[in-house]
Structures are given as structure tokens and as C-alpha cells.
Design a protein around this nucleic acid. Structure first.
Length: 489
RNA sequence: GGCGCCGUACCCAAGUGGUAAGGGAGCAGUCUGCAAAACUGCGAUGCAGCGGUUCGAACCCGCUCGGCGCCUCCA
């Protein structure tokens, strides 16, 4: 039974979807005016894992993640670059898809855009005016927070407390300083749509209400996003949606913690952020490996807490992953087993499945889930020492694929961590890092054949020469007891 | 001023009342022509500090110290 920490109630709760077999989930995506940083990656990954785990637990999942493609920052960026807003959003939506693809984040069921839901937004705004939750001033429409008694329920704030700390200039036309825009009249040159209140564009929060209701219905199961969205974004979404429909909105509110640099929040204003593509470009590892390392790193901590990003942390994740893929290489080889080891393997797998689920069920505790997979790795390494049949090895590898799939890990056929030559031509590699190998797999096999001969003739000098020259190109040889060798880049 | 989070070994990190998971790094050993991998062993008598509750506390309560977040666009 999955338990999730619900921001709305401040407690862990047993997750029960409205429809027994189908989960409806909405996650706030990004405003597309710039490249995504690791903080965005974490958020996307957390909900990707939640979705994967729900599917592993036999639910069908309808997963909606939006793009905010109309916003002040987009307009500003378009003006700076002297291009249209559409050009800006198209560019960064494509970049988003590329980045998420490299991270192995699966595409949502739907990826609605705000600009494609203007009619829904206008209708929703009209409903709020009709119901007395909103008022019109000079072509702008504002939501009146004092008309919504539960305002502050999600973020655990009272209106009075909010006022005390308000750091924004108060717009005199608003009835209350915390009232927020549903519809903004447009200035010349800004994107605009016709509306009953004149040409304008949606406010900051209404789009998510409109899109989630459109794609998931008035009431749905899970609404997610980063911690910083709790207030005001999600608070306002609740006010708008519940105000308009009179029904419950999302039932479980899930928020992920921040990625930090030296214990400080990663953010644009502090200038201490790393974009996802920057990490891939600077990485000395292949793209697939870098993606998986990033995933492993981001999942090493529980999603709710802060997570400090550093080079060292990435290396530790990489080293931890090496152990798994070294094991997988051995599991790919043939071997002899026994009824005893087969039984032990089955037992270990069963135990791991149970503990893995227990960890994941506990508010998606990926640290525990990873620890259980480490234990299984260790058990299987021991069994390998005693002998495991080819079939047992296949079963073991499949289990890692299956459990790993919940986390998006362990799906690679080969752990090729040195950048192969074809990729290195496209990537700007730091001169000081390992020289990429120009050898093809066949070249390597031939050299290994020669080395095998040399070894059998006790020509260890020649054997070591070959090992050394391969090592210089980032290729590591591991001798097996039968005289053959396995290798990895 | 209001709301909230965090402080566990060299590093990362679980554990929220029953006597400290896991990983990385390190050291020692087994195996090996060498190497790598793997395996074995070592590693916090203690969980920021001080008090309190309890048969029993890293976990509950209080205070103190230190770090951070939100209240403004932000994953």
C-alpha cells in the first residue's frame, strides 16, 4: 500500500485513487523561456518515478504535464532576442524534450500548452466572476482572496500573516493586496487574445486550473511540483478551481525538495545553477552513462529533502553504478549452477522485491529502494562465486531490469563510460580528460586474441603491453579464470 | 514579523521509541603471472549541544548553537 506525504494535510496518507485502477496525475511543468537546470530535472524525475512505480503497482496512469508558454519572462526574452514569443517557446520546448530524453524521463500522457487552452481559461474566469470570486478592473480580472474562506489551507498561511511580510508594491486597484490576476489586459506588442474584458492574456495561475480540469476532470488524484510552487501558485490554483467548480480539486499534493549548491538553493537569481545540457556537455562519460548517473544521484536522497549537487556526488553515483554494471557483465556470461544456488537466488530476489516495495511504498523512499538493490547485487556476487547457471543469470539480470525500471535504472545493455569516437566528435571535450578511443570493437577483440596467445605462451611482457596500450585509450581488461577476458570502455 | 525545513562516521544517506540499513572513499587480507572485479575483515558505545519524560530515545518534550527555505517569478 503506497503512502504519500500530502502537503494539504501535512501528513503521510495511504494513497487511494478515485477510480480503483486508474490514477490521474497533474504536474506543473516549466515556463519555456530558458534551458532547464538540475532542479527542473529533479522535479521531472521524481514524478516520472512516481508514475513508473504506480504503473509497476498495476495502475493505469493518466499523466499530464503542462508547458507555460505565455508569460512575462517569455515576452521579455523574445524582446531581448528580437524574435517572436512563439520562436522562444518552440526553441525551449524542443530543448526540454531533448534534455528529458537524455535523462530517460518518459513522455507524459498529455503535454498541454497554455496557449492552446485560452478558451478554457476564459470560460473558467467567467465562471469565477459569475460566482462572485473575481472582479474586473480596466480589462484585468482579479481573483478576490477574501471571498475564498479556505485561502491559505495548502501553504498553512493566514491572510493576515501574508500581508505582514508582503514585499511587493500594492496595486491600488486591487481589493486586497493578495488578490491575483486571472486575466491581464495586454500592452501593445504583447501576445493577446480576445476576451469579454478586451484583448489580453491569462494570469499566472489560471492556466494550470484550466488545463488540469480539461484533461483530468474537476477532481483528480495527484498534483505535483516543486516546493516553491506551494505558495502562491498551488494555493491559487486551489482557490480558482474549487471556487469555480465547487468541488474538491486535487486530493494528494506532492512536492519535491530543492537541488542545492553548497547548501544554498539553486536558482537563477543566485546564478548558481547548472543546466542539464551543460552537465552533459562537460561530462567525460558517454551520454547514456551521464543520464543514468544523474538519475542515480537524484534518487539517492528522499524526494522531499534538499539535495546538494557537486562533482564529487556525481562521481560517487557513477562508482556505485559501476558495481551494478560489472555484475551485469558477469550475468551475461554462461555458467554452471546447482539447485542450491538457484534456490538461493530465488529467495534473494523474492526478499528484494518485498523490501523494495516496502521502501517505495513508504512515500517513495528511493534511498531504501536503492539500498535493497545494492544488497541483491552483493548476494548475487556471492552466488556467482559458488556458480550460477546461464538461466539463473538471465533471471537475475531481468530482475534488475524490472525493479530498475521503476527508477529508470539498469536498462543499458552495456556500460560504456568512455565517450566513443562518433559521439566525441559532436561534443566539446575538455582536453585534459581521457583521450577517446578510436578503436572499434573488432580492433579490441583482435588485440585481446593476440594477448590471449601471448599469455598462453607466458609472454607476459607482450600481454602487459597490450593491456597498457588499451588502458591508455580508456579500455579496461578483466581476465577471467578460463583464460579469456572481458573488457569495457 | 509570520510559516516551515535541516544538523546521523572522511563523504553521501536510511532509520522517527527497543538498542545505528546501504553506498562511495580508505586500510588489511583472499584470489590472480600482473591487474581488474569479486569476496572477507576493520571503521559512529554513538546520531549538533545541554536538560527532561521513559524500563528503554538518534527518534518524544524544552532550551541552546549552527545551516537553509518560503512569505516576490522560481522545480
Amino acid at each position: 500500500m503506497l503512502k504519500l506525504f500530502n502537503t494539504l494535510t501535512g501528513r503521510q496518507e495511504v494513497f487511494e485513487p478515485i477510480e480503483p485502477q486508474n490514477v490521474r496525475m497533474y504536474v506543473c511543468g516549466v515556463t519555456v523561456y530558458d534551458y532547464c537546470h538540475i532542479g527542473h530535472a529533479r522535479s521531472a524525475l521524481v514524478f516520472d518515478v512516481l508514475r513508473r512505480y504506480l504503473e509497476y503497482s498495476d495502475y493505469a496512469v493518466t499523466f499530464v504535464k503542462n508547458f507555460t508558454d505565455v508569460d512575462d519572462k517569455i515576452i521579455k526574452r523574445a524582446n531581448e532576442q528580437g524574435v517572436s514569443c512563439d520562436a522562444v517557446t518552440a526553441k525551449y520546448i524542443q530543448a526540454y524534450h531533448e534534455d528529458m530524453g537524455k535523462l530517460g524521463i518518459r513522455a507524459p500522457t498529455e503535454e498541454p500548452k497554455a496557449t492552446e487552452h485560452i478558451a478554457d481559461i476564459v470560460r473558467l474566469t467567467e465562471r469565477l466572476i459569475t460566482k462572485g470570486f473575481a472582479y474586473v478592473v480596466d480589462g484585468d480580472v482579479y481573483f478576490e482572496v477574501s471571498k475564498y474562506p479556505d485561502y491559505g489551507r495548502l501553504s498553512k498561511r493566514r491572510l493576515e500573516d501574508l500581508q505582514a511580510g508582503a514585499r511587493v508594491d500594492v496595486d491600488e486597484r486591487k481589493h486586497h493586496p493578495m488578490d491575483f490576476a486571472l486575466w491581464k489586459s495586454s500592452k501593445p506588442g504583447e501576445p493577446a487574445w480576445e476576451s469579454p474584458w478586451g484583448p489580453g492574456r491569462p494570469g499566472w495561475h489560471i492556466e494550470c486550473s484550466a488545463m488540469s480540469i480539461r484533461h483530468l476532470g474537476d477532481t483528480f488524484d495527484i498534483h505535483g511540483g516543486g516546493m516553491d510552487l506551494i505558495f502562491p501558485h498551488h494555493e491559487n490554483e486551489i482557490a480558482q478551481s474549487c471556487g469555480a467548480t465547487g468541488k474538491e480539486f486535487a486530493r494528494y499534493w506532492v512536492h519535491n525538495g530543492f537541488v542545492q549548491i553548497n547548501k544554498e538553493k539553486m536558482s537563477k537569481s543566485l546564478g548558481n545553477f547548472f543546466t542539464i545540457r551543460e552537465i552533459f556537455e562537460k561530462s567525460e562519460w558517454s551520454e547514456a552513462v551521464t543520464g543514468e548517473v544523474l538519475r542515480y544521484f537524484l534518487l539517492s536522497t528522499h524526494y522531499h529533502g534538499p539535495l546538494d549537487f557537486s562533482d564529487q556526488a556525481l562521481k560517487e553515483a557513477k562508482n556505485a553504478l559501476n558495481g551494478f554494471y560489472d555484475l551485469f557483465a558477469r550475468l551475461g556470461e554462461t555458467g554452471q549452477g546447482s539447485p542450491e544456488t538457484d534456490y538461493s537466488l530465488q529467495f534473494s530476489i523474492g526478499f528484494t522485491q518485498e523490501m523494495f516495495r516496502k521502501g517505495m511504498n513508504d512515500d517513495l523512499n528511493t534511498s531504501v529502494a536503492l539500498a535493497e538493490l545494492q544488497q541483491l547485487k552483493s548476494s548475487i556476487n556471492k552466488l556467482l562465486g559458488q556458480g550460477l547457471s546461464t538461466e539463473a543469470r538471465r533471471v537475475a539480470r531481468e530482475e534488475f531490469r524490472s525493479l530498475g525500471n521503476c527508477l529508470g535504472l539498469f536498462q543499458l545493455d552495456r556500460w560504456q563510460f568512455v565517450v566513443p569516437v562518433s559521439e566525441s566528435l559532436l561534443v566539446n571535450i575538455d582536453e585534459t580528460t581521457a583521450v577517446p578511443s578510436t578503436l572499434t570493437d573488432t580492433d579490441i577483440e583482435l588485440l585481446l586474441e593476440e594477448r590471449k596467445k601471448a599469455r598462453s605462451q607466458k609472454d607476459f611482457q607482450r600481454a602487459d603491453e597490450i593491456r597498457k596500450s588499451l588502458a591508455n585509450q580508456g579500455i579496461i581488461i578483466e581476465d577471467k579464470p578460463d583464460g579469456t577476458a572481458r573488457w569495457k570502455r
